[in-house]
Design a protein around this nucleic acid. Structure first.
Lengths: 357, 357
DNA sequence: CTTATTTGCACAATCGATGGTGCAAAGACT
DNA sequence: AGTCTTTGCACCATCGATTGTGCAAATAAG
């Protein structure tokens, strides 16, 4: 360990060691040295010194000077959810491949926290911000705009900058139709047998509900209002809604459109309290994909949002000079019951092959 | 919008506006002003100016000067996994409550990438690093050590700094015993009917396997080597292992100890290819908890690692001046089939109550 | 009224890297 | 040999905040 004595080496240390000026060292190590006509041999010397002294640039200093940090932010509602965590996983890979550092933060679907979190990220001079599933995208926009920060919406659209979102109307239609068709012709679903639970007054929920109602009207002939129960995005709220329905009717609706896997967890909590034979004539459609949920002991039809394409599209759009504040729709995918799809983790190689025990 | 003209306000702008020096402005805004005997009225003036001009400190500049950034890092293997994402969720809440900024990054279980990622985080002058599930914790330690960065291991232990991990031996025992006892006395499990799949040569897997083998020996009287199949941490590797077993035996083992939910996904992929009646005499124990998996159509016994306690303990230990490089065990919890537990998301309030549609 | 103390703040160096500018030495050309 | 280019690099201001130090003005003590 040459001089791994204490603190990190700086360009000034290398400057002394190499006999060159700090600016020369800097130029060599950040790649601008050809432009500055540094001799090849000088560069070589500095590079080798940097190597032996384990030099790595202080990015705060660099960021301060250049007002760019190399950080790219992703603002999520929550981490603990397969949809959002697969977004994070995919986002990370993209950012890493561009040589930048991903920084993923959640803001709990709280508009105030969303803005404050964006402020915090801005104070670190992040280069770009991907605003995902924000409750108030335009509020976050204000903050970004004031700081001159490039940003884009994902999953839930805003009105000021481009948004990349799922085609929730189409997804809602697909899922609703699949639920209905799952019931045999001799015991068809009645309109008041198909309920939607979960979601709130956000763009995604509204579109899904619109699709749900349209298909119900088309295929079942009616679409009663009480079948729409936008109970929010908390498992226990959904659970209470199921309990309440069950208390009133002594059973669940035969067909359930569950908006988001979080609310599906609410359904599980409900089920844990009731004997299984209550659920023998049940078809669940869930707007979100989870491999385990797909194999539950009743038919579960799921919608898988196309995370890869959404992220790819978002990066494509954000790189444009002045992109229009338009909505880019990405088609989601209908997943039949008992389907195990691959995900972002399958792109990773499993490194350390197991040794024999 | 007073002067939200273009760029962010700095202490120099406020200095001019207030007629005070930049150092005074700085002191007022970072809270050290009493120590510097700034007049209350001066402070008040500056604070109000900061307010109207939406001043927020440039943290890169602050970090450069003070060599602290307010960033606290969490290095994960992957995001897209309920266990790790719930760790991230819990970690975030802790860091936020201390007024710092969490930064969560994944390194794909690749030792090289783990070190490089740590280097990157260090170059942003993060204040602390939580190393979670690292394949080579001691390698990351070297990097942190050289930079004088406080760090701690979670989930997988290192030898140089403290580690907070699950009691995997005990967890392995609990889970194995629960699987065995699940079989009725008149059709008991034979030793070669209980297999372990997944994991590699890491500390957690070794301990779980040790617990598994000990209990098998105790309860079933034998413990054949071929029942241990540490197929790594990739769903498709596990799937292939199940396929291969199935090809040889025409069925699966009656009892399965599946190491990690990722490998459980491999089991699902296998199941998707085979008719369901192959799995009527199957009990699965999975070392990881997932609410949906808990409700699958065969008995699934799960281990829930105590994420909250692990994170809390890790913060407690890392705050000690010179903590011993010891292992802190946290007891995991056995989760019987069909159990819907609450998680970190339940701590969040669901903000925007749904309006009537 | 003088000296000692306290109050209130300004000054300037500093953190580490970047990039514009300037200038000596080496080489090319007449 | 004298002038013109080109090469190779050093110098210095700068990014925005922090912090040790110094020093007037206001106040207190004698």
């Amino acid at each position: 360990m040459a001089n791994s004595s204490k603190k990190k080496a700086t360009i000034y240390d290398l400057s002394v060691l190499s006999g060159s000026s700090p600016s020369t060292v800097s130029a060599v190590l950040n790649g601008t040295w050809r432009k500055r006509r540094i001799k090849e041999s000088t560069a070589e010397l500095i590079r080798s010194l940097a190597e032996t002294h384990q030099y790595t640039a202080n990015r705060q200093a660099r960021g301060l000077r250049s007002s760019r940090s190399g950080l790219v932010g992703l603002l999520l509602p929550v981490h603990d959810n397969r949809y959002f965590s697969s977004l994070a996983q995919t986002f990370e890979a993209h950012v890493r491949s561009k040589g930048q550092c991903p920084i993923v933060v959640s803001a709990s679907r709280d508009p105030e926290e969303e803005r404050k979190t964006a402020e915090t990220l801005i104070s670190y001079s992040i280069d770009e911000l991907f605003i995902c599933g924000a409750t108030d995208p335009d509020g976050v926009h204000e903050v970004c705009e004031a700081a001159g920060l490039k940003h884009i919406n994902i999953d839930l659209p805003g009105t000021k900058v481009p948004s990349v979102i799922s085609d929730n109307y189409e997804g809602g239609r697909l899922l609703t139709e699949a639920i209905i068709r799952r019931f045999p012709a001799h015991r068809p679903l009645r309109p008041d047998d198909l309920y939607l639970f979960g979601g709130r007054n956000d763009h995604a929920s509204r579109e899904r509900i619109r699709g749900f109602r349209a298909v119900k009207k088309e295929l079942l002939g009616d679409d009663p209002d009480e079948c729409i129960q936008p109970t929010g995005y908390a498992a226990n709220n959904a659970r209470r809604a199921f309990e309440s329905f069950f208390a009133r009717h002594g059973r669940l609706p035969r067909g359930l459109f569950v908006n988001s896997s979080i609310n599906f967890e609410g359904l599980l909590r409900f089920m844990a309290e009731h004997p299984h034979d209550n659920f023998t004539d049940l078809v669940v459609g869930c707007y979100d994909y989870d491999p385990f949920a797909s194999f539950l002991p009743f038919p579960v039809i799921m919608i898988r949002q196309d995370v890869e394409r959404m992220i790819a599209k978002a990066f494509e759009v954000i790189e444009q000079p002045r992109p229009a504040a338009q909505i880019h729709l990405v088609q989601p995918q209908l997943v039949p019951p008992r389907t195990a799809l691959t995900g972002p983790l399958d792109a990773l190689k499993d490194i350390d092959l197991p040794r024999s025990h």
